[in-house]
Amino acid sequence: MSISSQSDLVSAEISPHEFSQLWRASRRESLGRAWYKFSRNPLSLIGAGTVLFVIILAVFAPYIAPYPEHVKPFTDFANASNPPSSSHWFGTDEIGRDILSRIIFGYRFSLTMGLVVLSIVVPVGVFLGLVAGYFQHTWFDTIIMRITDIFLAVPPLILALSVASILERNLLNSMLAVCLTWWPWYTRLVYGITTGLRNEFFVTSAEITGASKFHILFREILPNCISPVFTKMSLDMGWVIIIGASLSFVGLGVQPPNPDLGTMVAAGRRYLPDEWWMSVFPALAIVLVVLGFNLFGDGLRDLFAAENS
């Protein structure tokens, strides 16, 4: 039973406590509805499960990984290049480190990369998109959107590679490079939403009653951007991780001996095809996390699309 039909009976004489209870009930209902729609598609559930699994691995890496010490400078030439076995599920690398443990710790770098990049890129991109979209057909819009177009015209990986190659090689700089390539996507997205919304009557109504530009941008329009931005973020996590791994692969990102999935694939590829586990397992690990975030993001997109219709 939805509360919307009950409340017709509720009189105006109602205590603040009851108010908040009803409000929470309505929140619960919309969350329940969202979960129902999301869970209709088994792929989104698999995605969500994968994402959760990877996050748990990364957060509790020291407790989960069978050989946490293998992440630090470590050599064990006696057990070097062992194929997968019961003691080393994913085998060991050329200096005897457990690949499974290094993958688990590698997720830490991947997720950090994704989170840091998105938390820098999203506010900047969203802000520029909001302002440019609201002041459409002004010089501000022209400047921002043309710069955006220039960035979007260059493939992100190539741009990130060229920026990262002129900077010192470390994780921070590779994140910086990815950030530079990523903000325009959010600007474009939010720009599109904003130009659509600025003609909606609720925006017009706020304008003609005398609401400030700040109010209109951040109170009226921004809340309507949150769902699509959130969806894009979850889809992008996968892509940012891939780009980060690609940078590490060519040696521009995380530096050894730190375990990064891209670095591990790069190091292992020299031993292909005989000692295949050194590169195949890290590569599969990348596939897993990227796929997980993509399926999850697709689920969110369907959910928000259904919500708006």
Partner: peptide, 11 residues
Amino acid sequence: PAIYMYKYPNM
């Protein structure tokens, strides 16, 4: 009814 203040337009 006063309770409407906590509803969202789609309700």
